[in-house]
Design a protein around this nucleic acid. Structure first.
Length: 907
RNA sequence: GGGCGCAUAGCUCAGCUGGUUAGAGCACUGCCCUUACAAGGCAGGGGUCCUAAGUUCGAAUCUUAGUGCGCCCACCA
């Protein structure tokens, strides 16, 4: 190993070239270059954007939480965005990737409260609202910057100077404006209903902030005595503690078992209250006992029934879900789960306990505190969603909005078509305080863009602002607008709102389709009259190899920072994108990133090889002045084809496909054949030839670096900067702003390319034959070739390549070459290569090999000829397909014929 | 209970509007330290494309059903 290392390090250079040669390390060391180029880009303001006569291309960056750190979700989702932005920027667009952060109301408040508890042992109430708010702000200042730094480490080329933050003055003004506007239009109202109450955070949360979890619970059957009778009604419940708030028992009106009891009363055990037995269609006779206890204040269904039957609402829980004063003394102050046990125990003691069954059911939890939410009767602010949802749904139906993958539009539409009003008030301190003021004297309620100083109605100056804050999403849904200065006329002009709006594509995770995506569409349509983005791309969910989502608690996440540290940002980006197809799911583990690292290293070394032959004085010719040989034409055609596919794949968001193409062009074409073929020209003494081949290679490498740049910005910049300027390419200060390869401007040579392909096949099949019969690649062989007339000329002019790459001593070619005795045969489309190997091989091996080939080809030939014998196929299939099939048959049966003849010749 | 998606090589996946000798990366086998790269080169092995039926001249690709697995939505106590 050490020995090897020493030989590598010996510079392969001759005499006076030393001084001018381009020096480069023998392997790519990301740490050495990433910081350097990031600073260079930043100093040159390449990512800054402003309205111009160029076309805009805009992507809104989904605001990461201020509290979060970079994770693999960002690694893929955001890399996609950077890819598109860099691609468009190179194509000459004003590519604006708008970054920003979110104040993440509940999440931040939780963190700060925890911190406060830990460091000072205090609660938020201990220090008061103002001090607590300031603490949240400080927390954000400290932690908010971290994620930006991490985004920059991975090379995200957002317009960082435009960074917005939902609590900024301008963005807060937008929130205020929107609230006031909607309020005045009657789209915001205050209502008292059951909300999802987070008993830990002591705030309401919206339906969309819940998740449900299957839990192994119980179904308890309890007996309720009918007043003035010996009869008892058995009711089944999963939540016995709520019986303390029961105000009725309901049965189905047609249920014969209970018909005679409707209208009578139950004497509610423990509480000793009388509650009516009512009939309601909602009750399913076949579930449980067919009788349901009704707790209108603590169950959404019961709430509806309670309203229908005008039942009393008895609230038995306080903010922390402990039992209130309304319950019998023995229960007061108990936690809901403690109370549950006590209720059951009491029923047992009273002899009213029927039975208990195991029961699996899903229980709603709060996303943030992970606690079980409690339905709670409470006064909250709501947005009337229907008028906003309808246009948003229409936009998807009429094609103004396009989903990738398409199927997401169904999910989107289902939600909009069944929209519920949005509860926007939160009993928190961190966030935008609701701009509603109550008059202390007359109870009048008013709002305003400016803080009011007196009551509109009675003139009193004693006003109290609503203590609650707005849901974080109430500021996030303005993301397409507020960071661009909206609604202030002057500011939005300064920030080019109309130039950048609407954005081109939104790329995000599917889990926030309702919380964020749909609501942005609504806000965009409502306030700007146009969708905020045309395309919506949902990325794949990143999971571990077991298919589990990455999560902190499971500890199965891959830390991108660790990967970047080990392999570099480019490798991380490459793997992240190449593994993530459109939609679906992508399973990753750390070893997957080796792939990217290997590719980066390959590109590095290919360039390094070329640099050996280049110096600052190297004269490169325009391609039009080069007498192109076949390998060069083939390579240039490959570049053009690749550019075409890459541009197409970027356009329709098949990013992994684009990455795959680039990978294969660089590795499979440029390195494996392009450089290998070029080696002898580069080492030849023919100055002319050398410079021409070099011109082509530099040109192609420059193109390849451009293609790869959006994926691997750092390494491509480093190499590109070192690469001498080829006159056919533009040469700006950085590859960041260099032109992206455009196939319509790239030369392509279809015919030469396919001719060369045939030569490559020749080389490959000769190698294959040697390998199969066990002749070392080190043994030089002679080669006699029989080939089509077209190929004869091609091979004749390019013998050197075959000799070198297949280790052939001499070549003799003609269209009538016959097979010499004691030779091996490599047979392919349009050619037969004979390798005389007298004494080198056991011919039974060769025989076996050819027999195997015959078997394989016979199968194919049979398949094709059967197809052609089928009259229906010939008549109904399109002409070109039939023609193609005929050609195929001709070709394959030719090969088969040759194989058979060769087998016979072995004797 | 409704909706959506997935099932192709040992593993992770491509295969977009039906016509290929079904591909890639990793893993595996053999041969090569050929001075850009051993994180490499060359050559290979490995697949009844989940099952069944259907449409079609032709299905991995379209239809239907089934099986298995994910995700989302939903108030059955």
């Amino acid at each position: 190993m050490v020995e090897r290392y020493l030989t590598i390090c010996q510079p392969a250079i001759i005499g006076e070239q030393i001084a001018a040669m381009i020096s480069i390390d023998s392997s790519y060391n990301p740490k050495k270059y990433e910081k350097k180029w990031w600073d260079f880009w930043e100093q040159n303001n390449f990512f800054d954007t402003a309205a111009s006569n160029k076309a805009p291309y805009t992507i809104l960056m989904p605001p990461p939480n201020v509290t979060s750190h970079l994770h693999m979700g960002h690694g893929t989702t955001y890399t996609f965005q950077d890819l598109l932005i860099r691609w468009k920027r190179m194509q000459g667009y004003t590519a604006c990737w708008l970054p920003g952060t979110d104040h993440a109301g509940i999440a931040t408040q939780m963190m700060v409260e925890k911190d406060l508890e830990k460091t000072e042992g205090k609660t938020r109430k201990d220090i008061g609202r103002e001090a607590f708010f300031a603490r949240c702000q400080k927390w954000r200042d400290v932690h908010g910057g971290k994620i930006y730094q991490q985004f920059q480490d991975i090379g995200f080329s957002a317009d960082w100077k435009r960074s917005a933050y939902t609590m900024d003055e301008d963005l807060s003004a937008a929130v205020r404006y929107v609230f006031v506007t909607l309020f005045k239009e009657g789209l915001i109202y205050r209502g008292e209903r059951l909300v999802n109450w987070d008993t830990v955070l002591k705030t309401a949360v919206s339906d969309d902030e819940l998740y449900s979890e299957e839990m192994n619970g119980h179904l308890w059957h309890l007996r309720y005595p009918v007043e003035g009778s010996d009869e008892q009604i058995v009711i089944a419940t999963t939540r016995p503690e709520t019986m303390l708030g029961d105000t009725a028992v309901a049965v189905h009106p047609d249920d014969d078992r209970y018909k005679h009891l409707v209208g009578r009363n139950i004497r509610l055990p423990i509480c000793d209250r009388l509650i009516p037995i009512i009939a309601d269609d909602y009750v399913k006779s076949d579930f449980g006992s067919g009788a349901v206890k009704i707790t209108p204040a603590h169950d959404p269904n019961d709430f509806e029934i309670g309203k229908r039957h005008k039942l009393p609402f008895v609230e038995i829980f306080d903010d922390a879900a402990a039992i209130t004063e309304v319950a019998p003394e023995a229960f007061r102050g108990l936690d809901r789960f403690v109370a549950r046990k006590k209720v059951i125990k009491t029923f047992k003691e009273l002899g009213l306990f029927e039975k208990e069954e195991h029961y699996k059911h899903s229980v709603p939890h709060s996303d943030r505190s992970k606690s079980i939410v409690e339905p709670k009767l409470s006064k909250q602010w709501y947005v009337r969603m229907k008028p906003l949802a309808e246009p948003a749904a229409a936009a998807a139906r009429n094609g103004e909005l396009n989903f990738f993958p398409k199927s997401w539009s169904k999910t989107y539409l289902y939600w909009l078509d069944n929209i519920q009003d949005w509860c926007i008030s939160r009993q928190l301190w961190w966030g935008h305080q609701i701009p509603i003021w109550y008059c202390d004297s007359c109870d009048h309620l008013q709002t305003g863009v400016e803080d009011p100083t007196q009551c509109d109605q009675c003139g009193s100056d004693k006003l109290t602002q609503d203590p609650d804050v707005l849901d974080t999403w109430f500021s996030s849904w303005l993301w397409p607008l507020s960071p661009f200065g909206w609604p202030d006329e002057k500011k939005q002009q300064e920030k080019d709102l109309n130039y950048f709006y609407p954005s081109n594509v939104l790329i995000t995770a599917p889990e926030i389709i309702f919380l964020w995506v749909a609501r942005m569409v609504m806000a965009g349509l409502k306030f700007k009259g146009e969708v905020p983005f045309k395309d919506i791309y949902f990325t794949a969910v990143v999971t571990d190899k077991q298919g589990k989502k990455f999560s902190k608690t499971l500890g199965n996440g891959i830390d991108p920072l660790e990967i970047i540290d080990k392999h570099g940002a480019d490798a991380t980006r490459f793997t992240g994108v190449s593994m993530a197809p459109l939609g679906g799911r992508v399973m990753m583990d750390k070893s997957d990133f080796d792939h990217g690292a290997r590719f980066v290293n390959k590109l590095w070394n290919a360039s390094r090889f070329l640099f050996n032959y280049l110096d600052s004085d190297t004269k490169l010719k325009p391609i039009s002045e080069v007498d192109l040989d076949l390998p060069s034409q083939w390579l240039l055609t490959g570049l053009s084809d690749t550019a075409k596919r890459v541009n197409e794949s970027f356009s329709n968001y098949h990013l992994n496909d684009a990455v795959d193409r680039i990978y294969h062009f660089i590795w499979g074409q440029f390195c494996d054949w392009g450089l290998e073929c070029a080696k002898q020209s580069l080492q030849s003494s023919d100055e002319q030839k050398r410079s021409e081949v070099l011109s082509v290679l530099v040109y192609a490498l420059d193109g390849a670096l451009r293609l790869a740049h959006p994926i691997m910005p750092f390494v491509t910049e480093e190499l590109w900067q070192k690469l001498p300027h080829h006159p056919d390419w533009d040469r700006p200060k950085s590859i960041v702003v260099a032109g992206f390869p455009d196939e319509s401007k790239l030369a392509s040579y279809a015919k030469s390319s396919s001719q060369w392909q045939a030569v490559l096949q020749m080389i490959t099949s000769v190698r294959s034959v040697r390998q199969q019969v066990g002749i070392s690649p080190k043994i030089e062989l002679d080669c006699l070739i029989k080939a089509s007339d077209e190929l004869v000329a091609v091979v004749d002019g390019n013998q050197e390549y075959i000799k070198k790459l297949a280790n052939i001593k001499s070549i003799s070619i003609s269209s009538s070459q016959s097979r010499p005795e004691h030779s091996l045969a490599a047979i392919g489309k349009g050619f037969e290569c004979y390798l005389p190997v007298a004494g080198l091989v056991d011919f039974t091996k060769e025989r076996g090999r050819i027999e195997g080939e015959i078997k394989r080809i016979t199968k194919i030939v049979d398949g094709i000829s059967n197809k052609l014998k089928n009259k229906n196929f010939v008549e109904r299939a399109p002409e070109n397909v039939v023609l193609q099939t005929k050609e195929q048959l001709e070709n394959m049966s030719g090969q088969l014929q040759s194989l058979k003849e060769n087998l016979a010749a072995i004797g």
